[in-house]
Simulated scan of single mutants.
Amino acid sequence: MKVAVVGAGAIGAYVGAALDRGGAEVHLIARGKHLEAMRERGVTVLSPRGDFHAKPHATADPGEIGPVDIVFLGLKAYSYADAGPLLKPLLGPGTGVVAAQNGIPWWYFYGLPGPYEGRRVEAVDPGGAVSAVIPPAHAIGCVVYSSTEIESPGVIRHVEGTRFSIGEPDGTISGRCTAFSQAMTAGGLKCPVEKNLRSDIWLKLLGNVAFNPISVLTRATMGEIAAHPGTRELVLAMMREAAEVAASLGSPPKISIERRFEGAAKVGDHKTSMLMDYEAGKPLESGTLLKAPVELARLTGVPAPNLEMVAALIDLLTRQGA
């Protein structure tokens, strides 16, 4: 299997190194000092499961690679619309684009039978800008249950988790998903193919939709938010609203709100990714994590006053920083 990793940062380089270890033909697309280090020395993964090293091809130019079987997209979702020059040389007629993103994906209603089939989610695909770059027919959904960070250029620290759940938007178990799952498994990762990946998307989103924006507004860790009576109730209220939206769209989360909350609370004094991005002056993933759920609540007629309120506060905060 020929795989290109577009955005070979912490998660992308980790996946690329694992795929290379498993025997896939891997091409990492990155930039800067991280790219230079990977070109010279390859990728070193430091992991509690065992350290390993791989040296896949690394480049800044996708034109060197040509069409591939799978593109693993390690970019933030807000970068997708501008990724055309990186993706175009890699896409063949059957290329699958595994989008390792948080929150509601641009392809959400593609292949989903019902009253909203084919509808665009404007918060994540404004004016069809993302669909124009990554047609939904190429999309393979991916929910990441893994935490990694770049310790230094070319060196990835694997913190926890090895599961990357994937699935076709139309719910079929396709040959390309099966082949990619096998390649990931050969590299030491877990990659189940799900018929209803949307339930997994909502399950992870239940925590992100609340903890992430509240952490930015309060500068608090997940443990601090969970321990404070007021923010605890706000998180639970937001999670319940998101779960109702998910259920109205036919993808109720697989576990209870209380169990999902406790799982997130156990993380303890950990900063959310959105808070770390905010402190680093980076754009926030508010489109996929918050604006899209609010848009879907309005679409389905599910009352979501707490989601609406927090989304408004985050919107104002980001506008002030613009």
Rank of each mutant, 00 (worst) to 15 (best):
M239G: 03
G230I: 13
F211Q: 02
L206R: 06
L234T: 13
S256F: 02
P192A: 10
V159H: 13
F211H: 04
R198N: 13
G175V: 10
R119V: 09
A37V: 10
S273N: 06
G250V: 08
A58C: 08
G74Q: 05
G92I: 05
P229H: 04
R219C: 06
T59S: 15
K254R: 15
G250Q: 09
N306C: 12
S79D: 14
S146E: 12
T272G: 08
G22A: 08
A81T: 00
V121T: 06
T95P: 09
A220F: 05
H53I: 02
D51G: 03
A123F: 02
E262D: 13
M38V: 05
L203I: 01
Y145N: 14
A227T: 00
T221R: 01
W107T: 13
V68I: 08
R198Y: 11
L205P: 07
V159T: 14
I150G: 05
M238K: 02
E194M: 12
I173G: 08
Q101V: 14
G281D: 09
E241A: 02
R319N: 06
G268Y: 00
G42Y: 09
G141Y: 02
G23T: 11
P105V: 10
E151K: 14
Y80G: 02
E295P: 04
V43A: 07
G84C: 09
V294G: 00
A24K: 05
P105D: 06
S147Q: 13
D61G: 06
R21K: 15
V97N: 07
E194H: 10
E160Q: 15
W202P: 06
S181L: 04
K282Q: 13
N212R: 02
M222H: 02
A10K: 04
L86M: 13
H270Y: 15
G32R: 05
L236A: 07
R232Q: 14
S199D: 09
E36Q: 14
P113G: 09
Y278K: 01
S215V: 04
A30G: 14
Y116H: 15
C177D: 12
I70K: 08
G12I: 09
V5S: 07
L313R: 11
V6G: 11
H270T: 03
G63F: 01
R163D: 06
Y78D: 12
H158L: 12
S199Q: 15
K88D: 13
T148M: 11
I173K: 13
S47Y: 08
N102C: 11
L299F: 04
L307Q: 00
V294K: 12
A129E: 14
A4L: 12
E233H: 11
G111N: 07
L91H: 01
D69Q: 15
V6E: 10
P213R: 00
V97E: 12
V124C: 08
V302N: 00
R219Y: 07
W106T: 10
N212H: 11
R260D: 04
S146W: 01
Y110P: 03
V43L: 09
V3H: 03
S47V: 07
T288D: 13
W202D: 11
I255A: 11
C142T: 04
E224F: 01
T231R: 00
V26Y: 01
